[in-house]
């Protein structure tokens, strides 16, 4: 149930609070902790719990809504949507690309060739998928 969801908000982090919330919602959805139909905690609850400005929280929710992760249900709050219903966001791909670029560069400095890098990426992907599948089975 949505009430169990608690965001870990660090106001003094370099990551803006609204982005912290967005990232955590994405992570919770990806990890299966938030399922389609679940409700996000209310803006007021989140703001109170973390002692932050409610405006920041509602900004995060609005962005999640426009990204198609959640929908606003009148009188209830924010409801998580099914993954199929939402388009792959370009921005998240771009962000992933940045992360990968740094790793690739370091790989090159370490003297790895294309095949070796490719093999490592495939290995990691397989291991990650297996771990996720196991988690879901345990639930």
């Amino acid at each position: 149930m949505a009430a169990s969801v608690r965001f870990q908000i660090h106001p003094s982090s370099g990551v803006p609070i609204y982005r912290q919330i967005i990232d955590q919602v994405h992570a919770l959805v990806a990890g299966g902790k938030l399922r389609p139909g679940d409700l996000l905690p209310s803006v007021r609850t989140v703001a109170r719990a973390a002692d932050v400005n409610p405006m920041t929280v509602s900004k995060a929710y609005s962005q999640l809504e426009s990204a198609g992760v959640v929908e606003r249900v009148r009188g209830q709050g924010m409801r998580v949507l099914a993954p199929a219903d939402r388009p792959a966001p370009k921005r998240r791909r771009a962000e992933f690309r940045d992360l990968l670029a740094a790793a690739l560069h370091r790989g090159r400095q370490l003297g790895l060739d294309d095949d070796q890098i490719q093999a490592e990426v495939d290995d990691l992907l397989a291991a990650h998928d297996a771990a996720t599948a196991e988690q879901t089975a345990n639930r």
Binding site: S13, G14, D98, A101, A102
Partner: peptide, 19 residues
């Protein structure tokens, strides 16, 4: 980041800054 990485053949990491 890409430009710096290429121009100086450098490792570039990005750090978020707080206030």
């Amino acid at each position: 980041v890409d430009q710096l990485r290429v121009a100086w053949n450098a490792d570039v990491t990005v750090q978020d800054l707080n206030l």
